[in-house]
C-alpha cells in the first residue's frame, strides 16, 4: 500500500470511529440507559478515543509532532473537565457529590475572597487588606492578617518540615553511604520506620511538645517523614557512585571534605533529587492528613471542614488548592535541580 492510500485509510477509519463513538453514547443517553451503563460506556469510549488519536498521530507531519503531543497531554484532562461539566448539566453525573467544574471554580473564588467568620480564616489571608492592616497595626497587623491564611499555614508547615527533615536526612544518608558500620547499624531501623505511616506516630509526637496542638508537632511529623526518605535515598545515591570516581578523587589529592564536596555530593545528586521529589509528595500527604485530623487552620483543615458541613464544591476547591501546591512545589524543585545540576542538560 502506498503512503497516500494508507493516509486515506487512516482518514476513513478516524471518521468511522468518531461516528461510532457519538452513536454509541448518543443512543445510550437518548434511551435513558447511560447512567446504568456508565462504566462500560466510559471504558469503550476511552478505547475508541485512543484508537482515533493513534490514527491522527500517524497523520501528523513530523514538524507538528511536538504540538500534537502537547495537545494530547493537555487536551485529555481538558476533555474530562468538559465532559464532567456536560454530564453534570444533563444529570448524567450526580451534581451534589460531583459538582461540575464551573461550580468548583465558583467555590474556589468564594473561599478566596470571603472570610470565614466561624473559624476566622480565609484561603489567602485577604492580601487586598494589607495596606489597611499596615496603616492600622504596622507589621504586626499584616502578620495577623496573613495569619488567617489556610494556604500560608500549610505552605509554611511543609517548607519548615521539608528543610528540617531533608538537611539532616541527606547528612545521615551520606554518612551511611560512606561508612559501612553506621549503615549496618541504622539501615534496618530506618527501613522499619519508613513503612510506618507517619500519621500513626503523630499522637506520640504531640506528647513530646509543651503545646501539643501548636505548630511544633505538625512540622516535626513532616520532617520525620522527609528525614527517613532522604536518609535512605541519599545512602543509595552515595552507594551507586562508581568507585573509580572516588579513586580518582583520592589519587588527585582530595582530602575527606574535598572528596565529599567534589565527588560524593555531586555524584549522589541525581538520586538525592529523585528522593526529594518523592519526599515532597510524602510531605504533602502527611501535612494534609495531619490537618484533617488535628488543626484549626490549613488547606487540609479547610477541605475537611467543608466536607463536614456538607459543602462539597468547597471541599473540591480545597483539593484543587492541594494539587496547585503540589505543582508549585514540584516546579520549584525542578528549578533548584537545574541550578544545582547544570551538567544534566
Amino acid at each position: 500500500m502506498t503512503e497516500q492510500a494508507k493516509a486515506a485509510d487512516h482518514h476513513r477509519m478516524i471518521w468511522a470511529l468518531a461516528g461510532a463513538l457519538v452513536l454509541l453514547n448518543g443512543a445510550l443517553v437518548l434511551g435513558g440507559l447511560w447512567r446504568d451503563w456508565a462504566w462500560p460506556a466510559v471504558a469503550v469510549s476511552f478505547v475508541m478515543l485512543v484508537l482515533i488519536c493513534e490514527r491522527v498521530g500517524r497523520l501528523v507531519p513530523a514538524r507538528l509532532r511536538g504540538l500534537y503531543e502537547r495537545a494530547l497531554a493537555l487536551g485529555f484532562p481538558l476533555l474530562i473537565l468538559v465532559l464532567w461539566q456536560i454530564g453534570g448539566t444533563f444529570g448524567l453525573i450526580n451534581p451534589i457529590w460531583f459538582p461540575p467544574p464551573s461550580q468548583i471554580g465558583k467555590a474556589l473564588w468564594d473561599v478566596t475572597v470571603n472570610f470565614d467568620r466561624f473559624s476566622e480564616t480565609s484561603l489567602l489571608g485577604r492580601p487586598w487588606l494589607i495596606p489597611q492592616a499596615w496603616s492600622e497595626g504596622g507589621l504586626q497587623g499584616v502578620g495577623a492578617l496573613l495569619g488567617e491564611s489556610h494556604l500560608l499555614a500549610t505552605v509554611l508547615r511543609v517548607l519548615a518540615g521539608f528543610v528540617l527533615g531533608a538537611v539532616p536526612g541527606i547528612l545521615v544518608g551520606v554518612v551511611m553511604g560512606v561508612n559501612q558500620t553506621v549503615r549496618l547499624m541504622l539501615d534496618t531501623t530506618l527501613s522499619a520506620i519508613y513503612v510506618l505511616p507517619k500519621i500513626a506516630i503523630f499522637p506520640i509526637v504531640m506528647l513530646m511538645f509543651a503545646d501539643p496542638f501548636g505548630e511544633g508537632p505538625k512540622i516535626v511529623v513532616v520532617a520525620l517523614a522527609v528525614f527517613i526518605l532522604m536518609a535512605i535515598n541519599t545512602m543509595a545515591g552515595v552507594r551507586q557512585i562508581d568507585p573509580v570516581y572516588l579513586m580518582a578523587g583520592r589519587n588527585y589529592g582530595a582530602g575527606p571534605w574535598q572528596l565529599l564536596r567534589h565527588v560524593i555530593l555531586p555524584g549522589a545528586m541525581p538520586v538525592i533529587f529523585a528522593g526529594l521529589r518523592i519526599a515532597l509528595g510524602t510531605a504533602m500527604i502527611v501535612i494534609i492528613s495531619v490537618e484533617f485530623l488535628r488543626a484549626k487552620q490549613g488547606v487540609g483543615y479547610m477541605t475537611y471542614y467543608y466536607w463536614e458541613v456538607l459543602v462539597p464544591e468547597k471541599m473540591y476547591a480545597g483539593l484543587v488548592v492541594v494539587m496547585a501546591m503540589g505543582v508549585g512545589f514540584t516546579a520549584a524543585l525542578h528549578w533548584l535541580q537545574k541550578r544545582l545540576m547544570p551538567w544534566t542538560r
Partner: peptide, 8 residues
C-alpha cells in the same frame, strides 16, 4: 574508564 567527573 576515563573517570573524569561528569559533573565538572
Amino acid at each position: 574508564e576515563y573517570a573524569i567527573f561528569p559533573w565538572k
